[in-house]
C-alpha cells in the first residue's frame, strides 16, 4: 500500500476533466472563431513578441531584480480570516457566471449540468470544511469534530453558512414522510441573486453548487449522503431554494446505535 502504485482515483475528483473530452474540441473550435478581446486576433498585423526575446530584453535592462524575486510561499501566509480576505458579491457572481458558462458548454441536459456544478461545489466544500474547522478549532487545546448528524446539520445551517455566505440558512427541516431526508431552506440565496433561468432550462437550480458544498462537508465528517438543490418558489420568495439531503442508510443505522 505504501509503494508508489497507481492510486485509486476518487470518482468525484475527476468528473470535469475526463468525461467531456470529445465535446471540448468542438466548443474550443467555436470559441476561437469568434473575436475575443482577451486573446490576440489570429490574423493581426502586429506580431506578438516572443516570450524568449521579451525576457532577455528585461534581463538586459535589470539583471538583478529578476533573480531576487521570490514568490510568496503559501506556507508563509496566515489562514486566519481578516476583513480583507472577504470576497465581494460582485466578484463572486462574476466568477460563478464564468463557472456556469464553462460548465454549460460541456454538458447535455439539466441533470448533467447540476451534477457537474455539484462536483465543483464538492471540491470547494472539502476545502471550506477544513479551513472553517481550522479557524474555529485551530487554537483550541482539545480540538473537536462533530460526530452526531443533527449537530452537524445545525452547524452547517447556522455557523458555517454564516462564515461562508454572511448569513445563516432560513430554515432547517426534517422530512415528514421519509426519515432519511432533511432540508436546508434559503429564501433568497446570495449566489443565485443575479441568475434567471431560461424557460428551456426548466428545473435547473444553480444552487447545485452549494448542494455540492453541503455534500462535501457531510462526506468529510463521515455522513455519506446525496445532496441536491431544488427551486421551491413561493409568493413571498420567488428565489426560495431547498437543499435536499438524502442520507445513506448506514448513517441512520449508526445514529440509531449511538442513541
Amino acid at each position: 500500500m505504501y509503494t508508489s502504485g497507481q492510486a485509486v482515483v476518487h470518482p468525484r475528483l475527476s468528473v470535469l476533466s475526463t468525461s467531456s473530452l470529445p465535446s471540448e474540441h468542438s466548443s474550443l473550435g467555436t470559441a476561437s472563431s469568434t473575436t475575443r478581446f482577451s486573446l490576440p486576433p489570429s490574423g493581426s498585423s502586429t506580431p506578438v513578441p516572443m516570450p524568449t526575446s521579451a525576457s532577455t530584453l528585461s534581463l538586459s535592462k535589470t539583471p538583478m531584480t529578476a533573480v531576487n524575486l521570490v514568490r510568496p510561499n503559501i506556507y508563509d501566509r496566515p489562514l486566519n480570516k481578516t476583513r480583507t480576505s472577504e470576497v465581494s458579491l460582485a466578484a463572486f457572481t462574476f466568477l460563478f457566471s464564468e463557472m456556469i458558462q464553462y460548465t454549460q458548454k460541456r454538458v447535455n441536459g439539466v441533470a448533467d449540468f447540476e451534477r457537474k456544478l455539484n462536483t465543483l461545489g464538492y471540491r470547494m466544500g472539502l476545502k471550506m470544511l477544513e479551513l472553517h474547522a481550522w479557524r474555529t478549532e485551530g487554537t483550541s487545546k482539545a480540538p473537536k469534530r462533530e460526530t452526531r448528524f443533527l449537530t452537524v446539520l445545525s452547524t452547517i445551517g447556522n455557523v458555517m453558512w454564516k462564515a461562508f455566505f454572511g448569513r445563516a440558512m432560513d430554515a432547517i427541516q426534517k422530512s415528514v414522510t421519509k426519515d432519511d431526508e432533511f432540508m436546508l431552506i434559503e429564501n433568497d440565496p446570495a449566489i443565485t441573486k443575479f441568475i434567471s433561468i431560461s424557460k428551456d432550462m426548466g428545473s435547473l437550480s444553480c444552487s447545485a453548487l452549494t448542494a455540492g458544498v453541503v455534500e462535501a462537508i457531510l462526506d468529510g465528517l463521515g455522513f455519506p449522503a446525496r445532496v441536491t438543490a431544488h427551486n421551491v418558489p413561493t409568493e413571498a420568495n420567488p428565489n426560495c431554494t431547498t437543499i435536499l439531503i438524502k442520507l445513506d442508510r448506514s448513517v441512520l443505522d449508526r445514529e440509531e446505535a449511538l442513541k
Partner: peptide, 30 residues
C-alpha cells in the same frame, strides 16, 4: 474510535511491541 469520539487528537490508541500509535483525525477525514 472516530465514530463516537469527537476529539481530533486520539492519543495512544494502539500499542505494538515498543511502538505506541497516536492519531489525529481532521474534519475532512484526513
Amino acid at each position: 474510535m472516530m465514530v463516537s469520539n469527537s476529539a481530533m487528537y486520539l492519543k495512544s490508541i494502539d500499542k505494538f511491541n515498543e511502538w505506541t500509535v497516536s492519531a489525529f483525525v481532521t474534519p475532512g477525514n484526513m
